[in-house]
């Protein structure tokens, strides 16, 4: 087993809890996800025992919260110089990239896990489809992973966490709405229909939508897995290219 990967993973995960970052993130995520569900999501008025209004706000919550987690992943290592320490230890680049990514992903999964009282609430109020809720959680986690992989890659390209944050939000926003006129109209001016369809198929929102409704389609899962894989690979390449400065 590649144990250096898990050593990096453990160190990274512990570092979240060494500072207030973790607690601030978790509290804000829980408060916002609940508030949005009850106030904007018409949780009670709908009269249905499901978590659809809860999950439907996740893409927008992640849009700002995930970049806040990912922005420090590599930018901080570059700024403090620890990247030189990390990459001269007997560990491969990919192990370092994946170890750090998994730690951040675990951290977000932990925040997501703490929203389980929402699930208990609907179970108390009615008879929800537990399979559908589980699929919703899976979709939410996968989507967070996609955002995180993008953020990790962008974070590797800059020393400034602020720049990493803003760029990540913009790119995640583009991916989120790839299937919508806001993004497609931009490409429509010059791109052929085939490319437009390809771009539209990259939309986070469409792939997440079916999962959040409880439809587990292998294609959606593969999509997110490929997305994560691609961005992490790009992450490793960028670190290799930009180490010198």
């Amino acid at each position: 087993m590649s144990s250096p990967l898990w050593t990096v993973y453990r160190r990274e995960l512990a570092s979240y809890f060494a500072t207030p970052v973790a607690y601030v993130f978790i509290v804000i995520f829980m408060v916002l996800s609940a508030a949005l569900t009850f106030y904007l999501g018409n949780f009670y008025e709908r009269g249905q025992a499901d978590l659809l209004p809860f999950f439907s706000f996740h893409p927008w919550l992640y849009l700002f919260l995930v970049p806040a987690v990912s922005m420090r992943l590599w930018a901080e290592e570059r700024k403090s110089g620890t990247i030189e320490l990390l990459l001269t230890l007997p560990i491969s680049m990919l192990q370092a990239v994946i170890g750090k990514f998994l730690a951040a992903w675990t951290f977000i999964a932990l925040a997501l896990l703490l929203t389980v009282p929402m699930w208990l609430t609907v179970s108390y109020l009615g008879e929800p489809d537990h399979g559908a809720i589980l699929a919703g959680y899976l979709g939410s986690l996968l989507m967070a992973g996609g955002f995180l992989a993008i953020g990790s890659c962008i974070s590797a390209a800059t020393k400034s966490q602020v720049v990493a944050f803003i760029l990540t939000v913009v790119i995640c926003f583009a991916f989120l709405l790839a299937g919508f006129p806001l993004v497609l109209d931009f490409f429509r001016a010059f791109a052929p229909q085939g490319l437009l369809d390809a771009i539209a198929s990259l939309s986070f929102l469409t792939h997440f939508a079916s999962l959040s409704k409880g439809v587990v389609d292998l294609r959606d899962i593969v999509y997110f897995a490929l997305m994560i894989g691609f961005w992490l690979y790009a992450n490793a390449v960028i670190i290799d290219l930009k180490k010198a400065d």
Binding site: R11, S15, T82, T88
Partner: peptide, 18 residues
């Protein structure tokens, strides 16, 4: 090579929160 090497980078960076 890295297994056989001990390296102190310029400025002695380390993880500050540890």
């Amino acid at each position: 090579a890295k297994r056989r090497l001990g390296y102190l980078p310029e400025g002695a960076p380390s993880y500050g929160e540890m």
